[in-house]
């Protein structure tokens, strides 16, 4: 079914791909949010169209207007119904995305202006600079800390973003469906070199997990 829907909008999607695009998701969490976006977009387009048509029709002949129907019928009850539906969907998907149940835990530590990660390797827990290694096909909880200012961990193709705040530890769940390399960046403005605070996430085949990390495994 997903394939059919994807085939229906190939043109739109082809323009939206890219290593940082939320519209070319590579894991179940990012996928859920991408579907949510398309649903929201469709709903919003319909509503906007409806309002524009109503405004255009306002330029017709003057006519009797039932005030209650406009302000309470449309204004209150119609909008409340639409919003409730949206809220219920949001809560449902939000609950699904929360870190419930067991997951592999890795650490991401942010500082101006780089990331270091701690995760399992063949020789026990290993720290790498700028590259996070995770297994594909398994949920991973990233524990986020910062040693200076607020940063934000974001790998658009694998899930949402979460801030790394000094003095706190936050938890974000991500998951990659397939092995591969995914781009990540700091999303919260953090000073002079904010734009260059990028990193990579390498999702490994579960058979090759934990990975054998050599010096090439981490960014210079």
């Amino acid at each position: 079914m997903k394939c059919a829907a994807l085939a229906a909008v190939p043109l739109v999607l082809s323009g939206c791909t890219g290593p940082l695009s939320t519209l070319s998701p590579s894991g179940p969490i990012a996928q859920d949010i991408a579907w949510l976006w398309w649903a929201l977009l469709a709903g919003a387009a319909l509503l906007a169209l409806m309002v524009f048509v109503l405004v255009a029709l306002g330029f017709g002949r003057p006519r009797e207007v039932a005030e209650g129907r406009w302000v309470f019928g449309m204004g209150v009850w119609f909008s409340l119904a639409v919003l409730t539906l949206t809220l219920a969907g949001a809560l449902w998907i939000g609950e699904r995305m929360l870190p419930h149940g067991p997951a592999l835990e890795v650490h991401a530590h942010a500082r101006q202006w780089s990331w270091s990660f701690t995760h399992p390797g063949t020789t026990g827990r290993t720290e790498t600079e700028g590259v996070l290694h995770i297994p594909a096909g398994r949920p991973v909880d990233v524990l986020l800390t910062s040693s200076d200012v607020i940063h934000s961990f974001w790998v658009p193709q694998l899930g949402g973003k979460m801030d790394a705040i000094p003095g706190r530890q936050n938890r974000l769940r991500i998951e990659a469906a397939r092995p591969g390399t995914y781009e990540g960046l700091c999303a919260e403005f953090c000073g002079l070199e904010h734009a260059s605070m990028r990193f990579e996430v390498i999702a490994h085949d579960p058979a090759a997990w934990p990975p054998l990390l050599t010096m090439e495994g981490s960014r210079p």
């Binding site: 809220l87 809560l91 939000g94 609950e95 929360l98 419930h100």
Partner: peptide, 8 residues
């Protein structure tokens, strides 16, 4: 208050 009854 309605979401209070369901959310984590």
């Amino acid at each position: 208050m309605a979401p209070v009854l369901v959310a984590t």
